[in-house]
């Protein structure tokens, strides 16, 4: 899928909310954070919410950077690399106390697994149910 700005934002929200949400439901009890389950869920879903909300802002930057590319595309590899800047920002927020209180190991495990899973879905299986999606720049509606 070669994204438009609108498509980027829609895909980001839909994939993280649905695929990321389901995955967070499954993985949270297995995280080594030592906290009660309700607190763990609160923390992981807050992280997920942060990835979505801050992600929309990140998408504006990515879209701007995309304008320097002749093809106006966004290589698959960039979809993985951007986990670094986005993950770091959220970690900084956690460290300064703005984000939820999550231990580093749990955060990494949760964040990276959500990222890879949604990236994998976006790069193939997403096209199966949503056959128009890749031809409209990632827009779902």
């Amino acid at each position: 899928m070669v994204p438009t700005l609108n498509g980027r934002i829609q895909t980001r929200i839909a994939l993280l909310a649905v695929v990321g949400g389901l995955w967070t439901l499954l993985i949270t009890p297995l995280l080594p954070d030592g906290a009660p389950l309700s607190a763990s869920y609160r923390a992981t879903f807050l992280v997920l919410l942060l990835v979505i909300v801050l992600g929309v802002l990140w998408e504006l930057l990515y879209h701007f950077l995309q304008q320097f590319r002749w093809e106006k595309d966004w290589p698959t590899f960039f979809g993985l690399l951007t986990a670094i800047n986005e993950g770091l920002l959220i970690w900084i927020l956690i460290a300064v106390g703005v984000g939820p209180d999550v231990p580093g190991g749990s955060f990494l495990l949760h964040f990276i697994s959500v990222w890879i899973l949604t990236w994998l879905v976006a790069n193939g299986p997403m096209r199966v149910p949503f056959i128009h999606w890749r031809f409209q720049g990632g827009r779902l509606i």
Binding site: M1, V2, P3, T4, G7, Q66, W70, E71, K72, D73, R134, F135, Q136, G137
Partner: peptide, 15 residues
């Protein structure tokens, strides 16, 4: 890469 810039098949240029 291809005979058109890649975004003609679904990205910005198509739109």
């Amino acid at each position: 890469g291809f005979n058109y810039p890649k975004s003609v098949w679904g990205g910005q240029l198509k739109a």
